[in-house]
Structures are given as structure tokens and as C-alpha cells.
Amino acid sequence: MSLLDIEKLHVEFGSVEAPFTAVDDLDLNIEAGEIIGIVGESGSGKSVTALALMGLIDFPGRVSAGRMAFAGRDLLGLTERERHAMLGRDIAMIFQDPMTSLNPCFTVAYQLMETLRVHQGGSKRQLREQALTLLKQVDIPDPEHRLDAYPHQLSGGMSQRVMVAMAIACNPRLLIADEPTTALDVTVQAQMLELLLQLQRERGMALMLITHDLSIIAQTAQRVVVMYAGQVVETGSVPRIFKTPRHPYTQALLAALPEYNIGQSRLKTLPGVVPGQYDRPGGCLLNPRCSYATDRCREIRPALSVEEDALVRCHFPLDAAGRLTHCIPEGSATA
């Protein structure tokens, strides 16, 4: 049994008549102790997926799923009390912007001890002792003094470490990290990733790493899910996807990495943006931005299909050398 098992997750916003589908038919499972990367541009539905499984999507957002279970427990059927008991204890989450994610009115100690008190209780002294231990575990310098600091007295990296300390306080089995390094300085980013990986190893927790940066995934995850406009477009093991991307979108993301552009004066980019509520194209959602798109792509929305060792949502998946296999698009045949 997977630790997390999601089938056909659907998240909608806006009115019932003209809904905006933020997450569309998403299947996802995470094994205990696994590191899974979720990658995609802004607006591809990564964060919404995480918030939906935490139960943090508010009205007017609507969440439905064929199945959404954590360690065998149905997440959709939880009472509010059961959900509160689970959040922060079994599933914890850290967010993109550490500077705004901590409450500016309360000290580090208060916010750390609050999590501990709600989920396990204990005397004030015990809790403070534990909070101090947690700060030490996330390598915060001078932890005794940081306990009584307010968030505005901490740097971004330090705040994110406090967020991590808060998240791991109750030994969660799944840690969701939503762009944990995006708001940090480049030099701090590597340290933060290293910290997350170290904690993941020590505690054997599963880590769901949400990012738009494929190079982070390459260093950390075992499996990767590529999302585009609310849909999974490709999923498979990290080595496989980096070596032979099957989906044109994955290929384009990889091609945009600086590592793949050494010697070039310009980075390769994928023109355009993820379609929003009003400009979702018919057919394949990527077709306006895809250089391989054909009439079939513009008319029929592809389903997720098994391609050897991966799942790919494309009518014309690429072969191992990054070329089209199944069909040569008309128009480009002569080119």
C-alpha cells in the first residue's frame, strides 16, 4: 500500500457554470520514504495539488477525487477534527516564501511550541526544550537566542529553517515542500536542499518536492511528475526522464536548463505561458506552444498512456533520441 494514493483528483475554481480546472484527473502515489519531484511552470497546478491533499482549498474552490488516501485513510471523508489531528503531525508542509509564512506577531519559540503543544502536549519547559532541539537539528546558528526572536529579525534562509523545524516537529511521514528554495539566495538554496535531504534520510519520511527547477529534481528525487496546465504530462524515474524525455514539454523544460546550453549565448526557451482560465486551447493543452503540434493535437486531447517505463500524455511521444516516432507532422515533412 502506498503512503499516499490519489486517483482522479479534480480541483476547480470559479463559478459552477464556467469553472476553471486547476487540477485535472491527477493520479499520484507516493511510497513511504520516497522522494518525488513535481515539476512544471507557474500555474501548472503543482501547489494546488498539494493544498488539495492538505485540505486547504477553501470555498469557492472545489475538490473531488476518485480516491485520496493517506496511509490507508480516506482524506476526503475526514472530519475537521481528524484532519486537524493529521495536518502538521502526519503530513507537514513548507512554503515558498519563508518571510511571509511565519506569523510576524509571535516569536519563533511560540510558533514552534504551538505545533508541538497541539499535537503532543507537554509542559512549557519540555516544549521549549524540544523547540531548541529542533532548531539545532535544522542547523540554526545560536539557537538559544533565535528562540525568542521575531520573524522579522531572521533572514530568509533562517526563516525557512524555522519553517522546516516546525514541519518536522512531530515526525511527519510525508513532508510537502512547495518551492522551498525559490525565494532564497542561490548560496543558501543548496544548503536548504541538503538539509531537507538529510532530514529525509534520517527520519525516513517521504518528501514531495514541488519546484519549477528540474535541476533540483535531478539532485534529489527518485521519481518525477511533470505537470502542465493542471494535468500530468509525463511521469517516470528521474534517470529515465532526464535521459530520454518522451513528452515535448519535458524535453523543452530540459532544453531550457543552463546545463544543456553550455556554449550557447542564449538559453533555449519555451515561448508563451501556461494557458489560464480563458485561453485554454482545444485538443492538447500544450499545442499552441508545441513545435511538433499537428491537427490531431489541436482537436483531440491526449490521454495518459503507458510508454515502456513511463506514463506520457502525448499523441506523438518522442523516441530515445528526442525525435518524433509515431508520425511525422504534416508541413514539417518537407522542411
Binding site: L56, M86, L87, F95, S101, E114
Partner: peptide
């Protein structure tokens, strides 16, 4: 964001 954090803490 900190309200979301508070909710995520359970």
C-alpha cells in the same frame, strides 16, 4: 501566508 501556515500546522 502565515494564516495558511497556521492551518497547515493542524
Amino acid at each position: 501566508d502565515y494564516v495558511r501556515t497556521a492551518r497547515a500546522k493542524g
